[in-house]
Design a protein around this nucleic acid. Sequence first.
DNA 1: GCCGTTTTCGGCCCGACTGTTTTCAGTCG
Length: 586
Amino acid sequence: MSEVTRETLSSVLEEIALLLEIQGENPFKIRAYRQGAEIVSSFDGDIVARAKDNDLKGIKGIGEALQDKLHELATTGSLEFHQKLRGKYPDTFFDLFDIEGLGPKKIAALHKELGIASIPDLKAACESNKVAGLSGFGKKTEQKILEAIERREKFADRFLLHTATAAAETILERIRSHPDVLRAQWAGSLRRSKETIGDLDFIAATSKPADLTAWFSELDIVTDVIVHGDTKCSIRLENGLQCDLRAVSNEQYPFALQYFTGSKEHNVAIRSRALKQGLSLNEYGFTAAGKTTPHEPIPTVHDERDIYRTLGLDYIEPELRENHGEIEASEDGSLPRLIELENLRGTFHNHTTASDGVATLEEMAEAAIDLGLRYLGIADHSKASFQANGLDEERLAKQTEEIAEWNRQRGDELWIFSGTEVDILKDGSLDFSDDTLASLDYCVASVHASFTLDEKTMTKRIIQAMENEHVTMLGHLTGRLLLRRDEYAVNHEKIIDCAAETRTIIELNCNPRRLDMDWRWWRKARDKGVLCSINPDAHRPEQFQFLRFGIGIARKGWLRRKDVLNTFTLDEVKDYLGTPKAKRSL
DNA sequence: GCCGTTTTCGGCCCGACTGTTTTCAGTCG
């Protein structure tokens, strides 16, 4: 039996939810399984060990039935209930849920009537016009399914943050400049600063909603109109990105913005809180709920703050709205004051033409000055990263001298810290000697090869690097490339504990392809006293702009100004780096 | 299937839009 992981537990529950949907089960039962999957995957602690020990009592959302199932799954590696449900469905069957416009009912019908159990099956059935004949289906549905299959092959179903942000800025500007629009904002996962984006949501306040959705459907950027009604319009851009506009009245606007910002989990919790106060909350406003009438008249709401205030809550920043404890913290006034872009005074981990960057040291420095930064860290690759033209000791020494010369000439404008992004070799040793590392201001240590080690070996490898006195910070912890390459196996808890113990900074690599370490771990790291450095990993001057995405992720990870190295003043950074590692503190 | 200082049973969010229907089921968010 293969090792049962958190992901196993979570994905089995998720699959059960899908199968129950197919069977037309009670939607609330389905939701319970789905919530169970979510709870398991974000549980703060060793959920697998707890499941093995049958010690799941008291976890909200995991009742008796799920406790038993998780215990069985964790101890035996499989779950009879799940196996029985799965019955005759092959693995490929679950791909059908990715097809836009297909839900459990239609998928069940396709499977029952035509034996369809994979996307190729479905494509063939549509092409031979078998689907249009089914009850509840028709010509148009068949055509739409074919288009959705084609789109799935052609485009990613999610987009990186910088792609989505660039599109969103253009579109929002056009919406806001429309004469009938009073105010507008993007909502959804982009506003919450998720690491990847499925589609864009815009909310606009207007007294002429139908006119606005009609205008939106005819924009020159539209390649396809997905839906178009009087208050809502969904279009698709050339790159496949779907954009939804919802046109509401000015009174409804804050409610719509709050509602469509989500997350769904946050909203469910917020709405149930409202219900306890006798208020029903939806995307249009507060209404008196059921039989009970609110004790006081429903207050007027002008913006999102008023909604939270009405519910007795401090304002919750969009990035925090994941139902990961923000509502409780809001209630008792313990929400953090989140870091802001303006707090950043510098950046570490940037490349130049010395290794695989496309701009010289001077060009990078000038760009940093233009951006208003006070200091800049250079960290080119080390020699083991041959493919990236990594520096050997000699070239590194030369670069260090160039940097010293810059600091003598223009250090008052911009101070440059000389560093390296040293490879953590397969055995956990570093690509430079301690003496070489000691000649630098700081050192980023990263894994660039041997990604396939098992979790234990990989974790040990990285920990060994962090234990080095000269390793200031750990680069892109998991090596993931979003939408392209999975993270390698590494035990986050152990790395975080080790970072706290050895005073090693963990990088928040804010290249939108990475956004690594993941936002879900930062709050825990912060609480253990681990310092963060927000690093763009810039290979060209424009990539300093990635810092904004790093701020979004840091905010999502509950980080405050004081938790991030590059909010320090130049003198503070010099002090920090000049202090022996073991004596450094927040 | 989960939950509860109103509840151990009866709630659990629901509105917009589309396509296939001929008044509504299914999907989506």
